[in-house]
Amino acid sequence: MQISGRLELSRRHLLIVGAASLAASSIATPPPAAAQSAPTGAPVMTRVSFDVNGETHQLELDTRTTLLDALREHLHLTGTKKGCDHGQCGACTVIVDGRRINSCLTLAVMHQGDEITTIEGLGTPDGLHPLQAAFIEHDGYQCGYCTPGQICSAVAVLAEVKAGIPSHVTADLNAPLRLTNAELRERMSGNICRCGAYSNIAEAISEVAGRSA
């Protein structure tokens, strides 16, 4: 709980800093179509605003900044993890406009106006999301580093199944979907857990899926 309080403080602090630097900025966004390239390697700064967990943020960022680094380094929302920075592990999974994506492989500047949900937006230590509670109950994690990504992914997986989106293991593409064990495991396969909590994660998600079904 102490830790959560600390993060809250840091975030508010940063918002002020962000606003101040924004006010001082003279760079217009978006840059004109024939925007100057950067032969000297000088950062190209641009403004972007998006909602994170229901709160609007305006940032002035290097165009190179990924959504992941914008969350972690600029908004201090460090619940979203950097495991590989190359789309190979899933630790950075967040939900953007209702869909899970790897936040390491998308530029922050490409998310103007988007609604982003991170692990911090799903629940708090005092007000856990049902999946967060189920992960704790079923011990669906060990070191905890892939966990926020697993949980964000799981939230989206349940929605994907509800929406009838098929998967690699769906037996009949033209029949109604059922969330079998195989479906769950295939759909979660973009989230690597090196501690090997898969069996428990599957049970945690199944429990919540069963409850909501």
Binding site: T78, T80, E120, P125, I136, G144, I151
Partner: peptide, 22 residues
């Protein structure tokens, strides 16, 4: 017993090394 640090890990509030802005 469930892990006592579980609420922190599952909510992304357990601070790992690179995240210590504080």
């Amino acid at each position: 017993t469930s892990r006592i640090e579980g609420p922190l890990k599952t909510t992304g509030t357990a601070p790992y090394a690179y995240e210590r802005h504080d």
